[in-house]
């Protein structure tokens, strides 16, 4: 994907969450957004996802201006921190809903695709379970399967492991890494620094609504230009 942000701002009430972001990431496969909580990472991701409208400025994805429309949203796969599966539908039906109702696949075709996707994520045995019957890691894998089944142009992960224990975190990170090796493009908001460093082509450090700096993982983790970014990494990597 090619991703560029230009003059992006967004406020909630008097609070300016995104404060004039301009950045050209060029051509890349994976972008990780890191930084302190409340720094604007999730809001930026939600603007890219078309779930939030910027007050000013715009996002260019593959040269195309991102609009807050249903059409744009339906071509992306979003994975949320809290899984956001539909509790009244089993895993299979969670995958079928967008395939059949949004993307217009025939029932049989959608079913075959959904089952194959679940199988790929080692969830075949859980296809007929509702979210409440699944572990956190399984839920998040179902959510990833739901996002991937529609063959999205880009996947967006909003802190996908923040609600999981270490074991389940590993289970979900394995899946994301697999996607990377399949040459899927994605943007990832994460607090897992080791994983960000390992999986991302490019890392952007956000604080106080701005991209303070962005660069290759090596550059950010070993030779960050800003004191703010160095302090942040020193704090989170101390233990």
């Amino acid at each position: 994907m090619r991703l560029a942000l230009s003059g992006l701002t967004k406020s909630f009430g008097a609070h300016r969450v995104i404060d004039g972001i301009t950045a050209d990431f060029g051509e890349l496969r994976t972008l990780a957004l890191i930084g302190p909580s409340g720094g604007g990472k999730s809001t930026l991701l939600r603007i890219i996802a078309g779930l939030e409208t910027a007050d000013a400025g715009h996002v260019l994805l593959d040269g195309e201006r991102v609009e807050c429309t249903r059409e744009h949203r339906s071509r992306l796969g979003v994975v949320f921190q809290a899984f956001n599966l539909f509790p009244h539908l089993n895993a299979l039906d969670n995958l079928l809903l967008p395939l059949v109702r949004v993307h217009g696949l025939a029932e049989a075709e959608a079913r075959a695709l959904a089952l194959a996707t679940l199988d790929r994520f080692r969830l075949a045995d859980h296809a007929h379970k509702r979210p409440a019957e699944l572990s956190g890691g399984q839920k998040q894998r179902v959510a990833i399967a739901r996002a991937i089944a529609i063959k999205p142009r880009v996947l967006l992960f909003d802190e996908p492991t923040s609600a999981l224990d270490p074991e389940m975190t590993a289970e979900v990170l394995d899946v994301i890494e697999e996607l990377k090796s399949e040459a899927r493009d994605f943007v990832l908001v994460t607090h897992e620094m080791g994983f960000a460093r390992h999986v991302a082509d490019r890392i952007a450090f956000l604080a106080e609504g701005r991209i303070v700096e962005h660069g290759s993982p090596e550059q950010i983790f070993t030779a960050a230009a800003s004191a703010q970014c160095r302090d942040f990494l020193a704090r989170v990597l101390r233990h």
Binding site: R70, R73, F80, P98, V102
Partner: peptide, 12 residues
């Protein structure tokens, strides 16, 4: 979060 999820997958 349910409504957001519905929006994210592109439901009307």
């Amino acid at each position: 979060s349910q409504l957001e999820s519905a929006r994210a997958i592109g439901l009307t």
